[in-house]
Design a protein around this nucleic acid. Sequence first.
DNA 1: CGACTACTTGAAAAGAGTCAATTCACGTGG
DNA 2: CCACGTGAATTGACTCTTTTCAAGTAGTCG
Lengths: 214, 214
Amino acid sequence: MFDTPPSFIALPVSAPPPSALASLLCGPVKTIAAGQEIYAQGDKAQALYQVVFGVVRVFRLLADGRRQICAFHTGGEIFGFEVGAERHFFADAVTATGLRCLRTDSGDDLSHTLLSLALSSLDKAHDHLLTVGRNDARGRVAAFLLEMAERQNEGSSSVIDIPMSRADIADYLGLTIETVSRIITRLKQSKIIRLVSSRKIQILNWSALGGLTA
Amino acid sequence: MFDTPPSFIALPVSAPPPSALASLLCGPVKTIAAGQEIYAQGDKAQALYQVVFGVVRVFRLLADGRRQICAFHTGGEIFGFEVGAERHFFADAVTATGLRCLRTDSGDDLSHTLLSLALSSLDKAHDHLLTVGRNDARGRVAAFLLEMAERQNEGSSSVIDIPMSRADIADYLGLTIETVSRIITRLKQSKIIRLVSSRKIQILNWSALGGLTA
DNA sequence: CGACTACTTGAAAAGAGTCAATTCACGTGG
DNA sequence: CCACGTGAATTGACTCTTTTCAAGTAGTCG
């Protein structure tokens, strides 16, 4: 390892201090309907948002109409970071969603809190890149299901809600809807999952599912 | 667009202020050899680095030995952000490289500067995700060539240096070496590029190349 | 009940991966 | 200076995966 001069201290990048985070929150919760836009590419980047309930998707649109979903955000998560003054992405609600705007003008050292939030976004983006870059279709769907499961393990029921459509999943994973559907069918046939309904999936064999991802 | 309460100010996320950045720099330039490790997964995250010359690759290693390169970094770029106290990635030198460590203990409001750097990393990660998620093999290679060209358009020669191996390119784009090689051959046959040598590529038709990417 | 949308399934075609064999560039040592 | 060895890059033949296009099923809302 490349040795570091001792005078360099650790980066201030610990997990977001919950207290500082609480001080960041403020606005009232706004409820928006499924499909409603939160912001669009080209908008002025003005605020961050916290998801109170529901699901948000953040995505880019390509010239030919295709879409790459960069991230889904669910309860508690914060999104809306942008590099410049303008939005580079679109964000809209997948389901009816409650959002809180986050103040960034409370006077003092907010950038410390914002930094740890931004780094956590960066980390997730890298995870997603790994999922898409180094997994075949089956591995990507498996990773997606495990990601969704992890977000909602309150009570650790093995039945997970899939609030988004197959098209959303496909655009998130860089696949087509048909492939997503076929993979789900195959996972069902091999008894790794069970479909309660097309939007409610029970995981029967966690380790097998985990074994499919990179 | 979801309307924002007027009390919320713009995010402090403008481009890195060059002055503040200058104040961040300090350490002497360390030269490391091609292939030498800079940090490894599991290491304590201690500092950021700025590339003075040369090329660095940041990557993850999978259980089965495969590799996903998250980013290449060249002259001037800053890397080494981590979420927690531990490194989640490996970083090493592609070619002989000069690095400067960046102090993060200079007393005052560094997190503002760090935030804009982190957001710029986040933006690049999203770009890369788009490249890998929504392009076929040809589009990914085209995007890669254009990215490399953009990094070294001093003098705007159309001949670009490719300091990394085909294996590196493949691991960056989520492809195999053979596919990368075949795509390059096809681009050559269609007179979009010309190979000065396997590591020196001249772009003959920029717009055609741009038309291949999403 | 009918229309609409989401999801699933099938068959054929295209794309990318795998395995194997060359070719190429470059150093080293005879 | 040339033969040789090494690792990188290219090419070929073949297989497997994923997409494409098309059709069919299911569920929902009027």
